[in-house]
Design a protein around this nucleic acid. Structure first.
Lengths: 253, 253
DNA sequence: CGACCTTTTGAAACGATTCAATACTGGTGG
DNA sequence: CCACCAGTATTGAATCGTTTCAAAAGGTCG
């Protein structure tokens, strides 16, 4: 039963929330789907994801929902480093220092497959193309972070938020932009602020500003309509096409 | 001749500027050293590193010198994303979107080995442990960027600059901190600012502030003495030991 | 020595934060 | 069904950290 669910999600050109998710490009890996289906976990919104049973590091494959990776300073301030979306795979360390130490939180109800690092390594040996896939996902994550780092260092709040919205759009859909686009972000303004390095109050002001200019429309808790993608891209100083190329992993190109 | 130079640099437990650089942990790879020695390039300080001859992407192994990866906005503002130091390996794209699009500049006189992506892939297949090494280097780079992203979003100039100094210290030496430490950073205040997201003027003020507190001493163009590492770590809100673990790749642990 | 670049310092301006008060929104129970 | 509640969004005003501009001081190299 679980297996059939996974097949429908991960199979080549099958659809998840209106998008196709070919995992290995044109073909699919039955072995991988079997492994995934035997390690499914469900998390409620807001729950912190930990791995007490596992020793050392873990690998998380996101099948559904939004996961956030965040870091917290001593004074309690939290910065969201990245979101892990359906189809993404992320490495999470507990205390070995191999990967960045992040708090992992399910932003929405989430369905994950969790592997111990040892199991994952074995699987990478066995399954053709998995190593390449993981590397392309990591590379995409690194590219995203770099773009945000650039705008955090040299851009103002408008640029950062405009960029974040466009990043979400690019990650959530594969449409090209030929007019207004619409999508949903399962985040409060507080969290969008923790992601972009802006206070929640100023997130509000900035979004309102975009709305007033007719660039954006925001309904009930982050139902976003980008009414003028060209203008938003100009504020974000990004080419949507280039962005899609640099932050989209191989298997979705 | 070139080969012998490389051997002395990359060999197990050989010394480079007072540090040991075992590439593959306890053993070394003669094949890799041969490949590297046949692709050596020398760059002058300030020169931009490009790959006209190569199609698509490249892999750069840094043997000596500091390399910066930076991004620039339309208004000309430059953000330095990371520095690539001796012993590091970085992937650089030209226009394929596989890796982040960065301008690559030699901050000092630099000695590099440059591989085409195809050559590199072939080599990874042939040489045991190389894939693992590269992944650990990439993971360390990602962890560094995450830590800086946290402080860029939630920290002030003091925290960012304190962190950057400690990051340099950790990457440049393997000493544990049992008192004042001393090292050199081949950067102007302008570049330290472009790295930390602070104006060069404010970098100056912040460094002066640290000096006035007796935490730091700075001589002729960034000869840094951290007189009070504990205090600096407190300002940076980082544990130096933890930092070393999370941003140090496998082959140097 | 003068030319050039980097660092330093001061003062004004600006963007974003913080604090605080008010207005929404969705969910719960009377 | 409406009243109430908690969480979230919105708005205004004061404050703060940082930038910007500009000018002076310091260092280096021909």
């Amino acid at each position: 039963m679980a297996l059939s669910v996974e097949f429908s999600l991960w199979g080549s050109n099958k659809s998840l929330a209106g998008r196709s998710w070919p995992l290995f490009g044109d073909h699919e890996s039955v072995e991988f789907l079997l492994e995934v289906s035997s390690r499914l976990h469900q998390y409620a919104p807001g729950s912190v994801i930990t791995f007490e049973g596992q020793n050392n590091a873990c690998v998380i494959c996101v099948l559904g929902g939004w996961i956030s990776l965040s870091k917290t300073l001593e004074n309690g301030q939290t910065q969201i480093i990245d979101f892990v979306l359906p189809g993404d795979i992320t490495f999470a360390a507990t205390a070995d220092g191999l990967t960045s130490q992040c708090t992992i939180i399910a932003q929405t109800s989430a369905r994950l497959a969790i592997f111990s690092f040892a199991d994952w390594e074995k699987m990478e040996k066995d399954i053709e193309g998995l190593t390449k896939l993981v590397r392309s996902l990591e590379s995409a994550a690194h590219a995203r972070l770099s773009e945000r780092y650039l705008r955090m260092g040299k851009g103002d709040a408008r640029m950062r938020i405009a960029y974040a919205l466009l990043e979400f759009f690019v990650r959530l859909t594969s449409q090209s932009v030929t007019g207004p686009v619409h999508f949903h972000i399962p985040l409060r303004q507080q969290q969008l602020g923790d992601f972009t390095g802006v206070s929640s109050v100023h997130v509000c002001r900035t979004l309102k500003g975009f709305c007033r200019l007719g660039i954006l429309a925001v309904q009930n808790h982050m139902d976003i309509t980008i009414k003028n993608p060209v203008a938003l891209a100009e504020i974000a100083q990004v080419s949507i096409q280039d962005l899609r190329l640099s932050i989209t992993p191989l298997n979705r190109q």
